[in-house]
Amino acid sequence: MVNAVVYKMILASGILVLSLLVAMYSTLVERKVAGWFQDRHGPNRAGPWGLLQPLADGIKLFFKEEFMPNTADKFLYILGPSLTMLVACLTSAVIPWGPDIVINGESYALQVADINIGILYIFAIVSVGVYGIMIGGWASNNKYSLLGAVRASSQMISYELAMSLSIITIVMMTGSLSMREIVNQQQGFNWNIWYQPLGFLIFLICAFAETNRAPFDLPECETELVGGYHTEYSSMKLGFYLFAEYINMFISGAVMATLFLGGYHFPGLDKLGLSPNVFALVSFLVLFTKITFFGFIFMWVRWTLPRFRYDQLMKLGWKSLMPLAILNVLVTGVIILFNL
């Protein structure tokens, strides 16, 4: 029992550190990828290949002036970025990172909490995420921040619907809300994406909107709203907002990989006859590769597409994605009902 508690604590801190590290280096990768897409090199001065750049950026943010507008609501102003960061770190709790590992003859799950409503948990936490942005934008007492916050909330609510509807088909097929159960039903190459390509596409598009990434980065929208909800933020409070975006990117990549691309499964991997711990490590690397792939897609799209207009965003969410998702649910239901 004590062992299990200690193990969970180590695992939870490990995953926290991992997501922070990944987010840190995503900032570098994003700038590198942006450079490559624009025929540039990207940052390469701080350390070899610019590997120390995230450190330099972090130090810079820490030493910036802690500015607070004197009309701002002090408590809410600080609560905003804290909440965003907290929520970003919470989501990773239910993601299964790999098959069980064996320590001293006991097997432990590579998952912080295998709760039987894993998907609901993710949606609940992600929905709380919008509060961080809304509170921050409201507390700044600035019209641009408020506009950004309003956009963020309406956008997130609009896209969460289609997102949930696209997941319902997965739940219908699997018959479970547990993330581990969903992964285990995608053994080998039996991935959900082959059965739910439309659902995957809807989920992918909604994931862009949920993480406030281009082409749906209207809450920030520096061309119209200065900086959107974080206009009045500086120093590490701004850093938290920016950082949370990258953690969200990492986590939504993990969720997509888990729900649609078979999580840590890869065809032929379980036939290699590896010892359990090595197998767990390789499986984790497989999952990580899939997440990296999604991360690259996030960046690729960001440096390809211009920002949507606000009415286009709403039209796409309500008039295209929603009906498509409902249609997808209906078709899946009919197929399951008649065992086609």
């Binding site: 897409f37 025929d39 540039r40 090199h41």
Partner: peptide
């Protein structure tokens, strides 16, 4: 463009 020669 990823594989083009960098202009920098």
């Amino acid at each position: 463009h990823l594989f083009k020669k960098k202009t920098t």
